[in-house]
Amino acid sequence: EKVLKRMREIKNELLQAQNPSELYLSSKTELQGLIGQLDEVSLEKNPCIREARRRAVIEVQTLITYIDL
């Protein structure tokens, strides 16, 4: 939940920025750090946690791809 919240904050900052190119590098670095945090999530045998992590990774990767474009 914390990762998704921060990812959404970054997305809003990028969309509202007057000059978003200044934010791209720092935002991309922070998003890659969020992916690292998601990699540390213990998936164990809980399919709900596994699915939530998968969705979060996809959302963060989508935003990274947007920045790259």
Results as ranks from 00 to 15, higher is better:
Gly33Asn: 04
Leu34Ala: 00
Ile67Pro: 01
Ile35Thr: 01
Thr65Cys: 03
Glu40Asp: 13
Thr29Arg: 14
Leu15Pro: 00
Val57Asn: 03
Asp39Val: 08
Val57Trp: 05
Ile49Asp: 15
Glu44Leu: 08
Ile35Pro: 00
Glu9Arg: 03
Lys45Glu: 15
Glu22Phe: 01
Ser42Cys: 09
Arg53Trp: 12
Val57Gly: 07
Leu63Asp: 03
Val57Asp: 04
Val60Trp: 04
Glu51Arg: 06
Gln32Ile: 07
Ile58Ala: 14
Glu13Pro: 01
Leu63Cys: 06
Gly36Pro: 11
Ser27Ala: 15
Gln16Thr: 14
Gly33Pro: 01
Ser26Thr: 07
Thr65Gly: 09
Tyr66Arg: 07
Leu23Ile: 03
Asn46Cys: 08
Ile58Met: 14
Glu13Ile: 11
Asp39Ile: 04
Val3Asp: 06
Ile49Ala: 11
Gly36Cys: 12
Gln37Asp: 07
Asn46Phe: 04
Leu25Glu: 15
Ser26Leu: 05
Gln32Ala: 09
Thr29Val: 13
Glu30Leu: 03
Thr29Lys: 15
Ala52Pro: 06
Leu38Asn: 04
Asp68Lys: 05
Lys45Met: 15
Asp39Ser: 11
Arg54Tyr: 07
Val3Trp: 01
Gly33His: 13
Leu69Cys: 04
Ile58His: 15
Ile49Thr: 10
Thr62Met: 10
Leu15Asp: 15
Gln61Ile: 05
Asn46Trp: 03
Leu63Glu: 04
Asp68Trp: 00
Ile49Cys: 13
Leu14Phe: 03
Pro20Tyr: 02
Arg54Ala: 11
Tyr24Leu: 08
Ile58Cys: 14
Arg53His: 15
Thr29Ala: 12
Ile49Gln: 11
Tyr66Cys: 05
Ile67Leu: 08
Pro47Arg: 08
Leu15Cys: 05
Ala17Asp: 05
Ser21Val: 13
Glu13Tyr: 15
Asn12Gly: 06
Ile10Arg: 00
Glu59Pro: 00
Leu69Phe: 15
Lys28Trp: 05
Glu9Pro: 00
Gly36Met: 10
Ile35Arg: 07
Ser42Gln: 11
Gln37Cys: 08
Asp39Pro: 06
Leu14Met: 01
Ile67Ser: 02
Thr29Tyr: 05
Cys48Val: 12
Glu9Met: 05
Ile49Pro: 09
Asp39Met: 10
Gln37Asn: 02
Asp39Thr: 12
Ser27Pro: 00
Ile49Asn: 07
Glu13Gln: 12
Val57Cys: 11
Leu34Cys: 06
Ala56Trp: 01
Gln16Lys: 15
Glu59Ala: 04
Tyr66Asp: 13
Pro47Asp: 14
Ile10Gln: 01
Asp39Arg: 10
Thr29Ile: 15
Leu25Trp: 10
Asp39Gly: 14
Arg55Asn: 11
Leu69Ser: 14
Ser21Ala: 14
Leu31Ala: 02
Val60Gly: 12
Ala52Trp: 06
Asn46Pro: 08
Leu23Ala: 06
Asp39Lys: 11
Glu40Ala: 12
Gln61Asp: 04
Gln16Trp: 09
Pro20Val: 05
Leu25Met: 10
Gln37Phe: 02
Ile49Gly: 10
Thr29Gln: 10
Pro20Asn: 13
Ala52Leu: 10
Gly33Leu: 07
Val41Thr: 09
Leu31Gln: 00
Met7Ser: 12
Leu4Met: 03
Thr62Arg: 14
Leu31Asn: 01
Asp39Tyr: 08
Pro20Trp: 01
Val41Met: 13
Leu69Val: 11
Leu23Tyr: 07
Val41Gly: 12
Leu69Ala: 15
Arg50Cys: 09
Lys28Thr: 01
Gly36Glu: 15
Glu40Tyr: 05
Leu69Asn: 15
Val60Cys: 14
Glu22Trp: 03
Glu22Ala: 11
Lys45Asp: 10
Arg54Glu: 15
Leu43Gln: 13
Arg8Lys: 10
Leu25His: 06
Asn12Cys: 12
Val3Pro: 02
Leu15Gln: 04
Tyr24Glu: 03
Ser26Ala: 13
Leu34Pro: 02
Ser21Leu: 06
Ile58Asp: 14
Pro20Ala: 06
Ile64Gln: 08
Leu31Phe: 01
Ala52Met: 09
Leu43Arg: 13
Arg54His: 09
Glu9Gly: 00
Thr62Lys: 15
Asn12Phe: 05
Ile10Thr: 00
Val57Leu: 11
Pro20Ser: 11
Gln37Trp: 04
Gln32Cys: 02
Asn46Gly: 07
Leu63Tyr: 00
Glu59Asp: 06
Arg50Met: 12
Ser26His: 02
Gln16Ser: 11
Leu34Val: 00
Glu44Trp: 02
Tyr66Lys: 12
Ala52Gln: 11
Pro20Phe: 03
Val60Lys: 00
Arg55Leu: 10
Arg55Thr: 10
Gly36Ala: 13
Glu51Gly: 08
Cys48Ile: 12
Gln16Pro: 03
Pro47Trp: 06
Glu51Val: 10
Val60Ala: 13
Ile10Asn: 01
Leu34Gln: 00
Gln37Ala: 07
Ile64His: 07
Arg53Gly: 12
Leu34Gly: 00
Ile58Thr: 13
Ala56Met: 05
Leu23Trp: 04
Lys45Val: 08
Lys28Asn: 02
Ser27Gln: 09
Arg55Lys: 12
Gly33Trp: 07
Pro47Met: 07
Asp68Thr: 03
Tyr66Glu: 15
Leu38Asp: 03
Ile67Val: 07
Glu30Asn: 05
Ser27Asn: 06
Gln18His: 14
Arg53Gln: 15
Ile35Met: 10
Leu43Met: 15
Ser21Phe: 12
Glu22Arg: 08
Gln37Gly: 07
Gln16Val: 09
Thr65Met: 10
Glu22Lys: 12
Lys11Gln: 11
Ile10Pro: 00
Gly36Val: 11
Leu25Phe: 03
Arg53Thr: 14
Asn19Lys: 08
Gln16Phe: 05
Gln16Ala: 13
Ile64Ser: 04
Ala52His: 07
Thr65Gln: 12
Gln37Glu: 14
Asp39His: 06
Thr29His: 10
Lys28Pro: 00
Ser21Arg: 09
Gln32Lys: 03
Arg55His: 06
Gln61Ala: 04
Ser42Met: 10
Leu25Gly: 04
Met7Val: 03
Glu40Val: 08
Ile64Met: 09
Glu40Leu: 10
Arg8Glu: 14
Pro20Met: 06
Ile58Asn: 14
Asn46Arg: 03
Tyr66Thr: 15
Asn46Ser: 12
Glu44Pro: 09
Gln32Thr: 05
Ile10Glu: 01
Ile10Leu: 03
Tyr66Leu: 08
Ser26Cys: 06
Ser42Thr: 07
Ser21Cys: 03
Glu30Asp: 01
Arg53Tyr: 15
Ile64Lys: 01
Arg50Lys: 11
Arg50Glu: 14
Arg8His: 13
Arg53Ile: 10
Lys28Glu: 00
Cys48Trp: 08
Gly36Arg: 15
Pro47Glu: 13
Ile10Val: 02
Tyr24Arg: 01
Ile49Glu: 15
Val57Met: 07
Lys45Tyr: 06
Glu22Gly: 09
Gln61Lys: 09
Ala56Gln: 03
Pro20His: 04
Arg8Thr: 09
Asn12Val: 12
Val41Gln: 14
Leu23Gly: 03
Gly33Val: 09
Leu63Gly: 01
Ile67Gln: 00
Gln61Asn: 14
Arg54Asp: 10
Gln32Arg: 05
Arg8Phe: 07
Leu38Val: 06
Ile10Lys: 00
Lys28Asp: 00
Glu59Phe: 02
Glu51Leu: 05
Pro47Lys: 10
Lys45Thr: 12
Tyr66Gly: 12
Gln16Gly: 13
Gln16Asp: 06
Leu43Val: 13
Tyr24Gly: 07
Lys11Ala: 08
Ala56His: 00
Lys45Gly: 13
Ile58Trp: 05
Glu22Ile: 00
Leu31Val: 00
Leu15Ile: 07
Ile49Val: 13
Gly33Phe: 12
Arg54Cys: 08
Glu22Thr: 09
Gln61Pro: 04
Cys48Ser: 13
Glu30Ser: 04
Arg53Asp: 12
Lys11Asn: 05
Gln16His: 15
Ile64Cys: 03
Leu15Thr: 07
Gly33Met: 10
Thr29Phe: 12
Gln37Leu: 11
Val41Lys: 07
Arg53Ala: 15
Asn19Trp: 06
Val41Asn: 15
Cys48Arg: 13
Pro47Phe: 02
Glu13Met: 13
Leu23Asn: 02
Thr65Ser: 14
Leu38Tyr: 02
Ile67Trp: 06
Asp39Cys: 06
Ile64Ala: 03
Gln37Arg: 09
Arg55Gln: 14
Ser21Lys: 06
Leu34Arg: 00
Ile35Phe: 01
Ser42Glu: 14
Ile67Arg: 01
Tyr24Phe: 09
Arg55Ala: 08
Val41Tyr: 08
Leu23Met: 06
Gln16Glu: 13
Leu31Asp: 00
Asn12Thr: 14
Glu30Gln: 07
